[in-house]
Amino acid sequence: MIDFSSPKHRSKFGYMLLAPAVILMALIIIYPILLSVDISLQDVRIARVGGTQAPWTTKNYDWLINSEEFWNSIWVTARMVFFVGGTSLVIGLATALLVNQKFKGRALARLFVALPWAVPEVVATVIWAWMLDSSFGVINWLLLKAGFISEAIQFGSNATAAFFAVCFVMIWKGYPLVSIMLLAGLQSIPAEQYQAAKVDGASVWQRFFYVTLPNLAPVIGVTMVMTTLWVFRDFSIIYVLTQGGPIGATTTLSMLTFEQAFSFFRMGQGAAVGVVTMIICAIISRALVGRFAKSVH
């Protein structure tokens, strides 16, 4: 009989308690990753779980390196991450600062800020797809009526318009989460720090740059990681709005993975894109979390 209360065996008890969670994590996270890596190393159109294993080869990765579509999707994803992430952060911070102030109707303002986040993504995107429709969409109608444009913008067949339309909907859907997280961060900043800064004669901007931002840095770090990963893996907004077109202008890595695996039935190539996406996401997450965690100290 092991006495788990003794200092010698106390750690074993901890491991025992952790074991179910670790095993579950391994089953639902690690197994699919290993399966993806395995499929990415097979020259198969359609892989079957438990079926005959094809010999391992680097053919899919050779295709990846020489594929114009892959490098285009890397470029599109990078631009989208930068634009959506940056803009969401700016809008999210601005709205968080706004609803952190005391004013009449603050509860209602907080509700409106969070509303896009609460709407199911596909429902919201379908609504936007209709609003952005090239021929009958209300956005084009409003722009034409207001005289901002002389002819309808072809959101589906103009590469630049399609890219920004996708980014716009992503920002609309994504900024509330940034705002909510930053609001929580703002509320955790001790009021004494602001009072001390005021006593020292710090202006509003100085208080923002020397008190608010340093205190918010860890939250910003986590939020940026989450936003970046969200843009990387988001599929439904792009699929509903543009299906990755026109001419690959909105084909991100997740779109390319889906296209190869489920549209073209080239599962080996799709898995290879997925594995590379996972590696890129891991590197970015590590870099961002590490950088912002350091900035706290």
């Binding site: 590469a159 026109p246 001419i247 690959g248 549209s263 073209f264 039935f265």
Partner: peptide, 20 residues
């Protein structure tokens, strides 16, 4: 037949390129 979806995509891409 096997490549139909991919062919469809390629045709769409090149037709868009023709229009744009």
């Amino acid at each position: 037949e096997l490549e139909f979806n991919e062919v469809t995509k390629l045709v769409f891409r090149e037709v868009q390129r023709m229009l744009i």
